[in-house]
Design a protein around this nucleic acid. Structure first.
Length: 1031
RNA sequence: GGGCGAUUGGCUCAGUUGGUUAGAGCGCUGCUUUCACACGGCAGAGGUCACUGGUUCGAAUCCAGUAUCGCCCACCA
């Protein structure tokens, strides 16, 4: 009646439905129970979830379910992240591909509307994935980083920081994406090596004095930027700098490996000759710089200064370097140090602007050709070297990045960063594993101000209105007007007047609320709102409190903040975790979470991170389809160890024959693959042609989940056995002390396992928890307890004992289901339902009615009084005897159905234990135990195995089965092993140092085990002699 | 360039404070299909724990160095 496979596809949706109807996931802010809160790391709405998210959310759900069962008022706050630039870029790219439109064709409102559509679509998909995995979030509380609640928190925070002067405006070089026309953050930039050139050219010195050079030679990979040059730099102390480099190279030569010596030597020679040939000229240029001398910037017809700055490396190029502060990050630094003007030569779309005169309107490549040609005409062009150039590219648009000077809003980090560092150093926030503390502290320690403006349309619009170009009189009267507005709407605006360019001033007003009446007043004075939006991490940083309703003083906030733990991946420790800490402290003066657990990353079989762009990404849904949600979860938890990233070889599943085909670099980027098994083709995510698209699609899966799937099946079937044998179950109180040894053994093991699993989950050792449960369920509960219980549960068994066995079995299964539920919620809930029907009241020692859901049942607490070391030791003796009999049987090829006579030589104390277990020897090893006790005699045709640790001799009667050769082979091999060990131990004990220095108990143990081995050796030798005599 | 981590049977990984014969799953070999489960059961083969030194009575484990791989950060006129 109950099928022999767990049908997850059928059961899981119904179980989800039942949990949902009973509101099992819901957290109640009015509850008296202690709170336990986790906020989800909100997945980006850019696309569907992959296995990395699968892992992240599985681990959270394990903790959440465990705490819920432990009686906490548990809130797992779900939501998604608007992911600013990433989402906008995805939608813009699609717009381009499908409709050949840019965002400017649509306009701001329409583009944002399209992105909302996209968001709705993917949010639905993401939530569907999470729900299918069994994530027990409180779905009614679903948040989005761009929803009204979050918007309110964002504005309140911005307003507060602005008022505290922790938000300021400044010009900075940003990574400019000329395609998307926006600044992108450093982490959205990747480098690509391109073939390029190193161009040398000369700038004329203005009015050279006699003996001075007429030209300064510089070299660059970006000739067109010379139009924005505002200086030429030379090192302030070229002699010392050269000497330092030479010294360093000489030291390198000393310990350079053989194959590199020649290269290092050549470099040293080059430096030496360079010092000789160039030092005088560089020194002279340095003096000229100190003298304030100018050079003529060709094509732009500007005089620019020679400056002395350490950025100019005398060992490189010509030793002089052109300085373009507005278009190069390093030159920008030099410009700041040397107070140089900064000339922007680009328009936002990457074309040259009016400042470049006749080059206006040219694209960068066009301008480059023009500049080079013009310099050549002027005779100022020198050598052109070939060179590989690392060119930064935008991760989003895949186009080259231009460093670009732009107005940006910044968050001043000095105090905020310090507060977040303190929280970790004084352990208000604990990071696991602890090694990740360093990265967190180092990054915050730099206290670099946080640029928060993004030139995007998708995000929280910066709540600042401004008007620039004011003279000082206008600025004063504007300030007075704003003062008036501030009075009219108390607490609604902050304003300040600031410099705007060289001569004029600007007024900036920050408005607190989205629908503030102050907005109309402010705008009536000609102020307009900043078009930029905030960095997506600004709203993410508020996630733990914005989702609970801050800045409102809600019951939820009171009950569920601060949260207890955060489970996330290591690449956002700085971007997200650190910022949540400092924002939590700023807004609520309390850290947002007590503990942070950083879990491993999932890599594919080639050791690469999974991503859709590589084609090795795995959709959790595909794994669920093939293996079921419990297998997905168990498999991930089992692999999530503390030290290692998870290496997960990935396969295509052939849609025709269901064979798994290993992914290789080659086939994972192909649009179609021919199945090597059935030779039918299938398509991949890359299919483009209509022909390919018509093929069936292969799911990308991993056979790594097979073990977990088998485990689910094992548990299901053990449960099935128990259920089938609980017929007529009657709850009754149990006197544990009078139970047979196997029952007390099970209770003792349950006590141990419960405490181990609890500790493992408390300390984020998910792999350990999963393994402990796997081993216990499979090797102990199924392989021993269930097997032993079989005769006791049989219909013809003693009725009294059968009733007891049923009670213990029901209890054992009950406890196992509870322990496994956080990791495998579906199969356990399913079995829980069946068990509840047949045994609605259960428990040892006192039966009680059970909860209707495993999900809301109490998590087991280790019953210390059930732990019994003596029983566990005795039982393992029993297990070892079983193994010994099986070993002998196997070596003799005794057919499984045959029963063999067995004699067990043991101490008197063990006899009373083993005697009642005769039936189990029969059931587990096909043994007919004829004698047990100290005076046991060997059989006439005897196979003998000594278990010295247990002081037990196992004899099997081979009368009917003897295969002399096989038995001799077994004994000779055994003798060899024993002899080897004896040799090792004798050697060890002969070592005077060992005997005198090692602890007494270690030495004693060695002696004891040696004498045991020697007895065994004698016995085996005798057995061999006897056997040979016989033969 | 700086930091972090890894290197254990064919594959993927465990291995607690140094202490008997280094474990598991998959794969492999042999046996096994009325009796919960063949997604099962039993037995077995397979490892000089990356390398070189050191500390120690004793090292997969601690220390130093080397090699390879991975991740993060910085830098690249």
């Amino acid at each position: 009646m109950i099928p022999n496979r767990f049908d997850h596809a059928d059961a899981a949706p119904r179980i989800l439905d039942r949990w949902d109807t009973a509101h099992c996931n819901r957290a109640d802010a009015e509850s008296d129970k202690p709170p336990f809160t986790i906020v989800i790391p909100p997945p980006n709405v850019t696309g569907a979830l992959h296995l990395g998210h699968g892992l992240n959310n599985t681990l959270q759900d394990i903790v959440v379910r465990c705490r819920r069962m432990q009686g906490y008022e548990t809130l797992w706050m779900p939501g998604t992240d608007h992911a600013g630039i990433a989402t906008q870029a995805v939608v813009e790219r699609r717009l381009k591909e499908q409709e050949n439109l840019t965002r400017h064709d649509l306009g701001r409102d329409e583009l944002v509307r399209r992105i909302w559509q996209w968001k709705d679509q993917y949010e639905t998909r993401i939530l569907g994935q999470l729900k299918r995995m069994g994530c027990s979030c409180d779905w009614d509380r679903l948040r989005f980083t761009l929803d009204q609640r979050c918007a309110k928190a964002v504005r309140e925070t911005f307003f507060d920081l602005f008022g505290k002067f922790r938000i300021y405006r400044g010009k900075r070089l940003v990574n400019w994406d000329t395609f998307l026309q926006t600044a992108v953050s450093d982490d959205e930039v990747f480098s690509q090596t391109k073939k390029g050139h190193f161009w040398h050219f000369r700038y004329p010195v203005i009015d050279p004095k006699p003996g001075e050079p007429t030209h300064v030679e510089i070299a660059t990979t970006r000739p067109e930027t010379m139009l924005g040059d505002t200086a030429v730099a030379v090192h302030p102390d070229p002699a010392a700098a050269l000497a330092a480099v030479e010294q360093a190279t000489r030291e390198k030569l000393v310990d350079a490996p053989e194959k590199e010596r020649a290269a290092v030597q050549a470099e040293l020679d080059r430096l030496a000759s360079r010092t000789e040939s160039m030092l005088p000229a560089l020194t002279q240029l340095r003096d000229m710089a100190a003298d304030g001398r100018l050079v003529q910037l060709p094509l732009a017809d500007r005089a620019i200064p020679l400056v002395a700055d350490e950025w100019a490396k005398p060992e490189l190029g010509s030793g002089c370097v052109k300085i373009t502060p507005a278009h190069d990050p390093n030159d920008y630094e030099v410009g700041q140090r040397q107070s140089l003007p900064m000339i922007n030569i680009l328009n936002p779309d990457g074309t040259f602007n009016a400042a470049t005169g006749k080059y206006e309107g040219l694209t960068i490549p066009q301008a480059r050709r023009a500049v080079v040609a013009d310099l050549e005409d002027l005779g100022l062009l020198g050598d052109i070297e070939d060179r590989d150039i690392e060119l930064p590219h935008s991760d989003r648009s895949k186009t080259p990045i231009e460093p670009y000077l732009a107005d940006q809003w910044f968050v001043a980090m000095a105090e905020l960063a310090q507060s977040a560092m303190d929280a970790v150093t004084d352990e208000r926030v604990k990071i696991f594993p602890a090694r990740y503390r360093k990265g967190y502290l180092d990054w915050l320690g730099e206290k670099r101000d946080w640029p928060v403006s993004r030139q995007l349309w998708w995000g929280h619009r910066i709540p600042i209105w401004s008007r620039g170009g004011l003279d000082s009189g206008q600025a004063d009267s504007m300030a007075a007007e704003m003062q008036q507005i501030a009075k009219t709407y108390p607490g609604q605006i902050h304003f300040r007047v600031d410099a705007d360019g060289e001569r004029s001033q600007a007024v900036f007003v920050c408005i607190r609320e989205e629908n503030s009446p102050a907005i109309a007043d402010v705008e009536s004075h000609g102020l307009t709102q900043d078009p930029d939006v905030l960095d997506t991490w600004f709203s993410s940083a508020l996630w733990p409190h914005s989702t609970l309703g801050w800045p409102e003083q809600t019951r939820e906030l009171d009950k569920f903040y601060p949260t207890q733990t955060l489970i996330t991946s290591r690449d956002i420790i700085t971007l997200w975790v650190a910022r949540m800490v400092l924002m939590g402290l700023n807004n609520l003066d309390r850290v947002p979470f007590d503990e942070v657990f950083i879990h491993p990353k999932i890599l594919d079989g080639l050791g690469e991170t999974m991503s859709k762009s590589k084609g090795n990404g795995v959709d959790p849904n595909d794994i669920i389809d093939k293996f079921g949600p419990d297998s997905l979860r168990f498999g991930l938890a089992r692999l999530a160890t503390e030290t290692q990233d998870v290496r997960m070889p990935v396969q295509y599943e052939c849609p025709s024959c269901e064979k798994l085909i290993d992914q290789t670099k080659k086939n994972r980027s192909a649009p179609r693959v021919d199945c090597p098994a059935c030779s039918k083709p299938f398509r991949t995510q890359w299919a483009e042609s209509d022909e390919d698209k018509a093929l069936p699609k292969a799911a990308v899966v991993s056979e790594r989940f097979e073990t977990a799937r088998n485990f689910v099946n094992k548990l299901w079937n053990a449960s099935r056995f128990a259920l089938l044998n609980l017929e007529g179950f009657q709850p009754q109180p149990i006197d544990v002390a009078t139970l047979p040894i196997e029952d007390r053994w099970l209770l003792s093991r349950l006590a141990t396992v419960t405490s181990e699993v609890t500790t493992a989950i408390d300390t984020y050792q998910f792999s350990e928890a999963a393994r402990t449960l796997y081993d216990f369920a499979w090797d102990e509960f199924c392989s021993f307890y269930v097997e032993i219980a079989k005769p006791r549960l049989a219909e013809d068994a003693d009725a009294t004992d059968r009733a007891i066995a049923q009670n213990v079995m029901a209890h054992g299964l009950d406890q196992l289901l509870r322990l496994l539920h956080p990791i495998m919620p579906f199969v356990t809930e399913s079995v829980w339902g069946f068990l509840g029907e047949i045994a609605p009241q259960r428990g040892v020692p006192t039966p009680a009615p059970v909860e209707s859901f495993a999900m809301t049942a109490a998590f087991p607490v280790s019953v210390e009084s059930h732990y019994d070391a003596q029983i566990e030791r005795q039982f393992s003796e029993f297990q070892r005897i079983i193994a010994a009999i099986r070993q002998i049987r196997a070596s003799q090829n005794i057919p499984p159905r045959e029963t063999v006579p067995v004699a067990i030589g043991c101490q008197e104390s063990s006899r009373s234990l083993l005697q009642p277990m005769t039936a189990y020897f029969a059931a587990l090893a096909g043994a007919d135990v004829q004698q047990i006790g100290p005076e046991t005699a060997a059989f006439e045709t005897d196979a003998h195995l000594a278990l010295p640790e247990a002081q037990v001799d196992v004899h099997v009667d081979l009368e009917r089965f003897i295969d002399v050769d096989a038995e001799l082979f077994r004994l000779e091999k055994l003798l060899g092993q024993i002899t080897n060990q004896i040799t090792g131990k004798e050697k060890k004990l002969a070592n005077e140092n060992f005997v005198s220095r090692a602890p007494v108990d270690v030495v004693m143990n060695e002696r004891k085990s040696l004498s045991g081995l020697k007895d065994q050796q004698d016995a085996v030798t005798r057995d061999i002699a006897k056997l040979k005599q016989k033969a």
